[in-house]
Write a protein that binds this DNA or RNA. Structure first.
Lengths: 214, 214
DNA sequence: CCCGCTTGGCGAGTGAAACTATCTACAGAG
DNA sequence: CTCTGTAGATAGTTTCACTCGCCAAGCGGG
């Protein structure tokens, strides 16, 4: 596209500008997280700005969010394949998140609660969404621990989640800067997660201080 | 309460009733996650219902939430020490979450944004809360990736987080069943996290379907 | 009292995951 | 031609969460 005369980097420059050790870059190349550079010779390859951006994205997904290398690869390849269809990308990104190995249609205990919750909220959610299992498992765990926790307990949380999702999609709507929309989707859905949890913790601390007279 | 004449279990029964291999139970005992049973002889000890419950809690924290053994131990011992003071427990639980090794007062880039956000929300949050660093890091990552993301972007999310925290504390308020309040605090703050993220993902999928005409 | 089965405790081993270090060419600059 | 830098591959390291195997000591039936 745009001719950037000298944006061709060798691995050592890529390493220096990204702060990632070159050994680790090689590792990512081997693992298929980073596409190989254009080979100019048997022992020489060139990398561009795209590699640098991709590398930072990888570090963010793995380091900040704590994704596994496998999950990161799946997310990235999904994004690369369907850059056009935002909804498709979102579905793939959301589906690739949990590091679970295989996914059967349903599990058994707790599944009906999730169905009830989804129905109550009027949500259109794939039958195979891994998030369903996460909810079911959490409900199971909570119940086996003695908490009287049903799907109804989650409804207020679900409503807040819906408002959060509206915020998310709004941010995606007006995205036209240097970032590809697909990448922005990844950032919003994945990278923001720890930040949202951190916000919740701080809000809890504050709320607790207020109630118990900090 | 209910007469459990025979709630004394040996390790094999504890293993059978919890589904956790006895070798793993031994491991947790060694690691101090599970308090030792009452020794009846040099090679015999008895465990009770409390151990069973604790064991399930451990599995939930490690398996569902993905805490490390060290973090789990810290959380559990914090809960055991300050069972009375709910605010204290919450603080310890929230602080023990991140598996970070050391925490300096501040990091540098992004810290001022977090301060601005906290001030804007009027939150009382410890200067050393690890959540601060998480926010700062996330903002850093997002910016280095080209997203025009400031602390103002997070304000709507922070408001939703506050509502979530109110829900959380409300649930803690009327807790008087078989569960100790401290344990319930752990469950709510820690175990609910993946479920909240799962709710968000489902809501995103739904919202995306609605907007892009699913 | 004796024999076999289980238990508690402990040190060492396992396997996965994410790097990291080293080694072997070989390419291009001076 | 040498010297630095590189690709590619192999093997090593670290951390973590278990898991195995051994040993001596109960306990229970005959």
């Amino acid at each position: 596209m745009a001719s950037q005369g000298q944006d061709e980097l060798r691995i050592s420059e890529l390493s220096r500008r990204s702060g990632v050790p070159s050994a680790t870059i090689k590792f990512y190349l081997r693992e298929g997280l980073l596409p190989p550079g254009r080979a100019t010779a048997a022992t020489q390859a060139e990398y561009g700005e795209a590699h640098l951006r991709r590398l930072r994205l990888i570090r963010a997904l793995i380091g900040v969010r704590g994704l596994t290398v496998n999950a990161t690869r799946e997310v990235l390849s999904a994004v690369a394949e369907h850059e056009a269809d935002m909804h498709q990308v979102l579905g793939l990104v959301l589906g690739a998140m949990p590091v679970d190995k295989d996914q059967e249609p349903d599990d058994g205990p707790g599944t009906s609660d999730v169905n009830a919750l989804v129905a109550q909220m009027g949500w259109q959610v794939s039958e195979f969404a891994p998030a369903r299992r996460v909810i079911a498992e959490t409900l199971e765990s909570l119940r086996s621990l003695g908490a009287d926790c049903t799907w109804r307990t989650l409804i207020p949380y679900a409503e807040l989640a819906q408002q959060t999702a509206v915020l998310d999609l709004d941010q995606l709507k007006d995205a036209d800067d240097s970032l590809a929309r697909a990448e922005r989707a990844v950032l919003l859905t994945v990278l923001l997660e720890p930040a949202l949890l951190a916000l919740r913790r701080m809000a809890q601390e504050h709320e607790s201080a207020v109630r118990h007279g900090g």
